Computed example of a mutant assay.
Amino acid sequence: MYLVTGATGNIGGKVLDRLHAAGHKVRALTRDPGRARLPAGVDVVAADLGDPATLPAALDGVRKVFLMSLGHNKATHDGNLVAAAEQAGVTQVVQLSTLGVEEVDEEHDTPLGRWHRQAEQALTGSSLGWTILRPNGFMTHALGWAPGIRDASVVRSPIADLPEALVAPEDIADVAVRALTSDGHEGAVYSLTGPEALTTREQVAVLGEVLGRELRFEQMTLEEHHAVLAARYSAQTADGVVKALRTVLESGDDFRGRVFPGIPQALGRPGRTFRQWATENAAAFA
């Protein structure tokens, strides 16, 4: 059986759907099963990565795990799951990390990178088989622009001219499922980006072409962006994300614009371009 954490989220939900559609036995870990809308036939268990006592039951009979968690507690939460998985006889964990871990220059180190680096170390230092996925920023960040596009044909972002080789969550999920269900991925670290780097202004232009309407870009301050994040996440998570953005913007580092080969290596095909992703998801902006 496969256990999927973050099963109601952007990546975990896609991993679960793919495993279930392929006929695998899948269990979804969620803190609130009553609110989870999951496919019929999926085993749903109430558990919390922050509460180790809830994890043994969730891992009973499980052989492989897709592990993802967010925010400043990531190292603790992932460590809890890893420890319980060792006791439960799990054979492999595929962990969602971030490309920021590879920014090892201490001058450019950020809280976000440290949280994920510590979470990776909890897994790689265990007795479990492991595969680590390090995606760049997600193309789905553009979905946050949808209300402004619908209301006023405007996109507001703190990042204007920084090239980013963003990755489609669908491709991340495809790599995760390949690593979980086929041989040859144990001990692998896949750095995942799309096949091109675009600035936010260029993304907005592409999205406007796909939607057939002229969109306007407005740059917001990092303080304004922090307020948006703080409304959705913890204050520490919002602080960490904004600090990482500030470091990148002030340093002029081009790391986020580099194209990495993880998707072709794992899947034997290139990742989606932003135009392909936007075309597939155009209805979300209508």
Score class of each variant (00 low, 15 high):
Met1Cys: 05
Val4Phe: 10
Thr8Cys: 09
Gly9Ala: 13
Gly12Pro: 02
Val15Leu: 00
Leu16Phe: 08
Arg18Leu: 14
Gly23Cys: 04
Gly23Pro: 08
Arg31Ala: 05
Pro33Tyr: 00
Gly34Leu: 03
Arg35Trp: 09
Val42Ile: 06
Val44Arg: 06
Ala46Met: 13
Ala57Ser: 12
Gly61Ala: 00
Lys64Pro: 01
Phe66His: 11
Ser69Ile: 00
His72Met: 02
Lys74Val: 15
Ala75Gln: 06
Asn80Ala: 06
Leu81Met: 14
Ala84Arg: 11
Gln95Glu: 13
Gln95Lys: 14
Thr98Ser: 15
Leu99Gly: 13
Glu102Ser: 12
Glu103Ile: 15
Asp109Tyr: 02
Asp109Cys: 09
Thr110Pro: 06
Arg114Ser: 15
Ala119Asn: 08
Glu120Ser: 04
Gln121Asp: 14
Gly125Phe: 04
Trp130Glu: 04
Asn136His: 13
Phe138Tyr: 15
Phe138Val: 09
Thr140Ala: 11
His141Asn: 15
Ala142Pro: 03
Gly144Pro: 08
Gly148Met: 12
Arg150Met: 10
Ala152Gly: 11
Ala152Glu: 15
Ser153Lys: 15
Pro163Lys: 09
Ala168Ile: 06
Pro169Val: 12
Ile172Gly: 09
Ala173His: 07
Val175Gly: 04
Arg178Asn: 12
Gly187Lys: 01
Gly187Phe: 06
Gly187Cys: 03
Thr193Val: 04
Ala197Ile: 09
Leu198Thr: 07
Arg201Glu: 10
Arg201Phe: 07
Val206Arg: 03
Gly208Tyr: 07
Gly208Glu: 01
Glu209Ser: 12
Arg213Asn: 03
Glu218Arg: 13
Met220Ala: 05
Met220Phe: 07
Leu222Phe: 02
Glu223Leu: 05
Glu223Thr: 11
His225Gly: 08
Ala227Arg: 15
Ala227Ser: 11
Leu229Ser: 08
Ala238Cys: 05
Asp239Trp: 05
Val248Trp: 09
Leu249Cys: 01
Phe260His: 12
Ala266Lys: 00
Arg272Asp: 14
Arg272Met: 10
Phe274Ala: 04
Arg275Asn: 05
Gln276Phe: 06
Asn281Pro: 02
Phe285Ser: 02
